[in-house]
Measured scan of single mutants.
Amino acid sequence: MQIFVKTATGKTITLEVEPSDTIENVKAKIQDKEGIPPDQQRLAFAGKQLEDGRTLSDYNIQKESTLHLALR
């Protein structure tokens, strides 16, 4: 499925993911596309910060959802 990640600079990244993917996997995909190390990424959805060990389906993130990326 496709999801979107909006960066602090307003850029939107499109990612191909599975509901079973962990947040860690998603951060690795962002690193592949943007070169941002996962340990510098903070992802949020619906106002909640997402934890590495959880999956997209844990957070009820569905196709075409938009996550927000902040850098630490």
Rank of each mutant, 00 (worst) to 15 (best):
Q2V: 14
G53D: 12
K27P: 00
D32P: 03
S65E: 14
G47R: 04
L50G: 01
P37W: 05
L43N: 00
V17Q: 02
A70L: 06
A28D: 08
G53M: 09
D39H: 10
G35A: 06
Y59P: 00
F45C: 03
I3A: 01
V17P: 01
T7V: 14
T7S: 12
L50W: 01
E51M: 07
E64F: 07
I61W: 01
L50I: 04
I36T: 07
P38A: 11
I30S: 01
R54H: 10
K6C: 06
G35P: 03
Q49P: 15
I3Y: 01
S57A: 12
R54N: 12
T66D: 03
T55Y: 08
I3D: 00
N25V: 10
R72A: 11
G53S: 15
E16F: 11
V5D: 00
T7N: 09
M1T: 03
D21F: 09
F4K: 07
T9V: 15
R72W: 15
D21P: 01
D52T: 09
L69M: 13
E18N: 10
E64G: 15
T22N: 08
K27T: 02
L50Q: 01
E34R: 05
S20I: 07
K11V: 11
T55M: 10
E34S: 14
H68I: 09
L67S: 01
K27N: 01
K33Y: 08
L56H: 00
H68W: 09
G47H: 11
Q41W: 03
A44F: 13
P38L: 15
S20M: 12
E51C: 05
R42S: 12
I36H: 11
Q40S: 11
I36P: 03
D21H: 15
Q2F: 09
Q2Y: 13
I30H: 00
Q31E: 13
K29T: 04
N25C: 04
K33H: 15
L69A: 02
V26S: 01
T9W: 12
E16H: 15
F4R: 06
Y59D: 02
T22F: 14
L15K: 00
P38V: 11
L15D: 00
I3P: 00
L69Y: 02
P38S: 12
D52F: 04
E24Y: 13
K48P: 02
E64K: 07
E18C: 04
I3L: 15
Q31P: 01
Q41N: 02
I13Q: 02
D21R: 02
E51S: 06
E51H: 14
I23M: 04
D52I: 06
N25S: 15
V26D: 00
L71G: 07
G10L: 08
S65F: 07
E16S: 09
Y59Q: 03
I3T: 01
V17S: 03
Q40M: 06
K11Y: 14
V17G: 02
P38H: 15
D58Y: 11
K27R: 05
T66L: 13
Q49L: 08
L56F: 03
L71N: 15
M1G: 02
L43P: 01
M1N: 03
T66A: 04
T22E: 04
A70W: 13
Q41D: 01
E51N: 12
I61E: 00
F4L: 07
T22C: 04
A28C: 04
G53V: 12
A70G: 10
I36V: 06
N60C: 04
Q2H: 14
V17M: 14
D52M: 05
D32M: 14
E16I: 14
L67H: 01
T66V: 07
T22L: 09
A44G: 09
I3S: 00
I3H: 00
T12M: 08
A28P: 01
L56Q: 00
G53F: 12
K33S: 15
L15M: 05
D32H: 11
E51I: 11
Y59I: 02
I23N: 01
